[in-house]
Nucleic acid binder design. Sequence first.
DNA 1: ATCTGTGGCTGTCTGA
DNA 2: TCAGACAGCCAC
Length: 879
Amino acid sequence: MEVVNAFVDGPDLIILEREGDRIVEHKTRPEYSFFVETEQLQDVDFARQIRSASVVRAMVSEGRWTRIVWSDDFVRKEMLYGRLIRSKNPVTGEEERRRNPSPFQTRGITTYEGDVDPVRRWFTDTGATIAKPRRAYFDLETDSRVNFAHAKMGRSRIISIAACTEDESKKFLQVINAWSDSEERRIISAFFDWIDEVGADQLIAWNGDGFDFLVLRERIERLGLNLDMRRKNWLDHMVLFRRMNMNSSDSGEEKQSMALNAIAFAQLGEGKEEIPPEVAKRWPGRSLGSLSYELWEAGGEFRELLTRYNMKDTLLMPRIERKTGYIALFDTLADVCRVLPNSVGLQPTKQMDGFMLRLALERKHHFATKVFREKGEEEERDQFAGAFVMQPRTVGSKKKEDDWTPDQAEAWRLKMKLENGILRDVHVADFASLYPSIIITWNMSPETKLQNAAVNGPIAPGTCRSPLTGVCFDVTVEGILPAALKTMIAMRKVWSDRAAKLPPGTPEAKEAQRRSMAYKVAANSFYGVVGSPFSRYFDREVAESVTQNGVWLIKRTIAEAEERGMEVLYGDTDSFFAMNVTQTEYEAFVSWCNDTLYPDILQKVGCTENRIKLAYEKAFSLVMFTAKKRYAGCFLHYKGTAAKPVPGEGEVFDKKLHSRPEIKGFEYKRGDVSVLARRLQEKAIMTLMRGVVRPEAYRQLLSEALTHVATAELPLEEVQISKSLSQETKKYHRKTAKGADQAVPPHVRVAEVLEAKGLELGEGSRVSYVVTDSSDGIKAIPAQDYKGQIDRYYLWESMVYPPTQRLLQAAFPAQDWVTGLERIRPKQTRGKRVLPGQESLFGDAADPIGEHARKLRHLETAWVNAMTRSLEAEVAWRG
DNA sequence: ATCTGTGGCTGTCTGA
DNA sequence: TCAGACAGCCAC
């Protein structure tokens, strides 16, 4: 049975199935049940009482389990958690809530899967699978005079709706012809008719969860339309894109914005709808999206422009999908995990639930009822220990580390006869799917975890131990979690083998590849779900033992490598980088680990099945580190494929001729760093990757950049910073210890300025700003108000130079990267604004030390001029 | 109907 | 001047 959708409608569970082109509706009763262990029902009277109770619909014996089906969810909740009693405290007058224990609780009978909702129960019990959805994309334009928050509450009229099918062969576009409820009803009804006409069951909108779906639901309600949103799967393309893009290998670019236009531009190179001159003249500085009412009201060509804009945005979505294939992958993942292909199904907790409950049922296993937090009860989150990250060798920074001080770094550099921080011929190995492998190898599962096993000393027969946490597991029965992972890994192989046999590029081959990928994605998310307190499978001890067994393995591996004379430079979680070793020797070491070391040490901790596998992954001809999680490397080869050279100076990257260097963590690839800073660091990294070791080459770069910062007209794109709001602006405000208002971060202050102007900036929106003055705390303005007013000292000292300085400090630690570069704001001007012409802006900071400082002096005049222009612009702007 | 995890760097602000 | 809290983003 291939199910398109399922939902509870009062007393019914509605199942929508596809038969050919038709949707067939089935009705059944929603089941509110839980399981108990039959042996816990020894009290015959109690068992009889349950069986004959009017609120019990059925009591079914299923092997060692008894399934008790209740008449409704309310009764089931009382039986699980007890009856809720509300009373007033006679002293304080406050309302108190407590629970009278249920008969199951008083008897100490454990319940299982009592929180499972009827849709999930039905999918689990029937084994029904998910039909491949038929997609349509849509976008709404609503009354732009109503702010975002009110629009979501349904106070904004829908003006126009655009929609299209996957292949764009069928389109829908309707706009209201008059400002009336009846017109709005007409276009909404027409939209739903069109959905049925094209047979769509999955409706996709960009930021649909945050806007379109909510607005549609509220308007349907307010207008009294007889349309049922529950019959369709509503999927937010933006949320899906963000999730899938994190897993994607080539997700390096474009982190500035999750706006549809920004993503479309990055993925497709398609730009925004141009603002026609008539519009720009009539509504200066306004975007088309913010003018929906005005354009509609103006009528004629303006109204047509609105609908065109509406359709254009809609069409971007299927095009993004054709490029990425993320929705198709999610559809497959939904089928694998038996979740509906909508926004809720994107949650890893839901995916794991769907997969595990079914597998557990097949294996006659059930999970304890999940206890949900009571309302208003905020529990503190108590983190568990995670992975090991090794301090990289050759760090040239001034920071003192416990395990690698600058002195040690220097001594090591001398010993290694290194002239700079650039390391050559570095080999990298990593564990294949480390966490899933650990879970299988230690047979880690909630039900195999042993409660009273000894933490130290000999390991009892039939058990294994996590050496760093002491948590032990039964190895005589396969755990349900390892079983799930083994199934997924096996299925992944089945589908990738099948894909390899099919003619490349065919739809069948692509679908087989997607299935293979879907199993991988799901398997990799399980560890995280086990570590999440919100999940049914949460087990702190299991999650921590997973990470700590990883720590144990990688540390042991590194120690063995060092004992064999390799210089281990770095390692993070599941990888290690080594030099002073040939490729042949390194490969031999990897084989020895797999063939001898791991079998040996795992057997000693009691593991009976070894899935741990180290793999030789790649080599760098040249690599350099500045800190943990920050490095850049030039490939020698990757998984056996020889690398091409990195692009030379001034050369444009060409896939056929060049290999991209691997760059991790640097500001260069962060979305919250200014373009100027990123560009300078990128140039320095690329020069390093070309093997250039003359410091003068880098001094030249710095000199050019400093000249630019000091003297050029600086366009907004180069100097703005953009950061997201992780919460609503008012939630950032706190009191200091003294009770005063604590300052909020600069981007939040800017967001508040924008909000005061009437813009709606909810959680997740990005704020772009420019720093105008940093002499006494950061003063920033919204990017849209930028007209050249900028603190150029701050720009250089705090934004542009530091990322590159750290890089050069690490690459050439013997060089002076401070004098004349790190501080350019003259001392006497700190804490006050300097007016141009009053005194030298460089003061005595530019002591004539070295070539570079002399260059700085030449800049002085130009700098003064630039500052004058900048301040004049500011004065003009402030009016 | 909101919810995969921890480790780590770098920035701002506070308060000594 | 400097440590500590907090925030954002990134590596795994």
